[in-house]
Amino acid sequence: MDIEPIDVTPEEAPPLPKTGFLPIETNWFDRIFISVVIWVALSLFWLRFIEPLGLSIWICTAISVVLAAIIIRKG
């Protein structure tokens, strides 16, 4: 039985792992995942300890978005 190879053009090829400031090799999906993990952890921490002091959760969201942008671009 002939098995036809699946064509993978350079645009479709999976992204290559890269090393940024994160201690592990990551691709773009890993960096999005890490950003979401940090965002959720930070939000739960903020709800428990910072929000009772009067600082809104939206500040935490803004910090998380900035962190995510840095991690995705330079992580």
């Binding site: 939000s43 739960l44 709800l47 428990r48 929000e51 959760i57």
Partner: peptide, 10 residues
């Protein structure tokens, strides 16, 4: 909004 999550952490 996040009221349920607020309740979870406490």
């Amino acid at each position: 909004w996040a009221a349920n999550y607020r309740r979870v952490v406490f």
